[in-house]
Computed example of a mutant assay.
Amino acid sequence: MTTPSASRRDRKKAATRQAIADAALQLFLEHGYDQVSIRDIADAADVSTATVFKHFSGKEALVFDQDEDREAELVAVVRQRPSGQSVPDALRQHVLDTWPAIAGHPQAAEFTDLVNSTPVLRAYSERMWTRYTDSLSAAIADEFGVEHDNLACAALARFVLDIPALARGRQDRRAAVETVFDILTHGWEPPSRPAAP
């Protein structure tokens, strides 16, 4: 009897968290990050400031509301991949399954502009990506029984995390992702010149 009620409670918490994050992003995009207070966000989401802090550690975390989920997903992709699937192939599939939808979001450009134009968000984003690199690198290292500071594992993690930025703005983002993973998997080869007409 308690399971449905716990499940309902979890859904309600998730919905409240999402409503707060959505309200915050909308306010940040409309007014600028520095012009919006936690009280403004709480009012827009119709919750108390205490509720905002119950769900988010601070103002920056409101912008990157899926941060912890993304980090956990990356680690799970490596650790829970099907038997026989290589680490790069598992990561390739994950990037192809998740990134194009994020990049194609109607607010993706506005979000990127917000982060890039706000020093505190840019710094937070860089710390977040460093943490992702460390977590992903450690998961890869564990799979091969090597030290967490193994350079090959760190390089793979770093390049995988940079793929969305490398592919951004390309006409065929999916093909760009595939190209970078092919380089990671098979090595770099000099590009060939187009044939003369």
Rank of each mutant, 00 (worst) to 15 (best):
A24K: 05
A167P: 03
P194L: 15
F111E: 08
L156P: 14
L27P: 08
T49V: 15
V95G: 05
T2C: 02
D89L: 09
A157K: 02
S125K: 04
D67S: 13
A21H: 02
K59T: 09
V77H: 01
M1F: 10
Y33P: 08
A23N: 02
I41D: 01
P119D: 07
F53D: 03
T49Q: 05
F56S: 02
Y132V: 05
L29H: 01
A139C: 11
A154P: 00
Y132K: 15
A108R: 11
I183M: 10
T179C: 03
I38Q: 08
G32V: 10
E143G: 14
E73Y: 01
Q107T: 15
T185C: 02
R174F: 00
A15V: 01
K12A: 15
R81E: 07
L156S: 03
E110G: 11
D69T: 12
D172E: 06
F28R: 04
D134Q: 13
S7Y: 13
N150K: 07
R174V: 12
A108T: 10
D142Y: 09
F159S: 11
S117N: 15
Y124V: 04
E60A: 13
T112R: 12
F111G: 05
A90T: 07
A152C: 09
K12C: 01
A21P: 06
V36A: 04
